[in-house]
C-alpha cells in the first residue's frame, strides 16, 4: 500500500480536529478535537519513520503520547473546575483573561 495514503488520512484527521477546535463550544469536544490533532500528528510521524527507515519518528510519537496524556490530566482538571464554578462547559463563557 502506498504510504502516501497514510499521510492523506493524517492530514484529513488534523483538519477535522482543527475545525472542531475552532467551531465547537463545548470544552470537552474541543478537547477531544485537540486529541484528534495530536493523533493525526502521531500518524504522520510513524509514517515518516517508515518512509525514512529510521526510528526517530516513532520515538517522537511516544513523546507526543506522553505529552497528550499529561495535557489531558491538566486540561480535564481545569475543565472540571470551570464547570463547578460556572455550571457550564462552554469555552466562550470563560473569557475573563483579557486586558
Amino acid at each position: 500500500m502506498n504510504p502516501a495514503n497514510y499521510l492523506y488520512l493524517s492530514a484529513l484527521l488534523f483538519t477535522i480536529g482543527a475545525a472542531g477546535v475552532l467551531i465547537r463550544r463545548n470544552a470537552i469536544v474541543v478537547f477531544m478535537c485537540v486529541e484528534l490533532m495530536l493523533n493525526a500528528c502521531n500518524l504522520a510521524f510513524v509514517t515518516f519513520s517508515r518512509l525514512h527507515g529510521n526510528l526517530d519518528g516513532q520515538v517522537i510519537a511516544f513523546f507526543t503520547m506522553v505529552v497528550a496524556a499529561a495535557e489531558v490530566v491538566v486540561g480535564l482538571a481545569i475543565i472540571v473546575s470551570i464547570f463547578r464554578s460556572r455550571h457550564s462547559a462552554s469555552v466562550d463563557d470563560a473569557n475573563l483573561m483579557k486586558l
Binding site: 477546535v21 475552532l22 463550544r25 474541543v30 466562550d92 473569557n95 483573561m97 483579557k98 486586558l99
Partner: peptide, 17 residues
C-alpha cells in the same frame, strides 16, 4: 493593540492557526 485580546479561546486558536 490590546483590543485584539478579547478573551475568547477560539479567536486565539484562529490566530494561532
Amino acid at each position: 493593540l490590546r483590543r485584539l485580546q478579547n478573551g475568547y479561546v477560539r479567536s486565539y486558536a484562529v490566530s494561532m492557526l
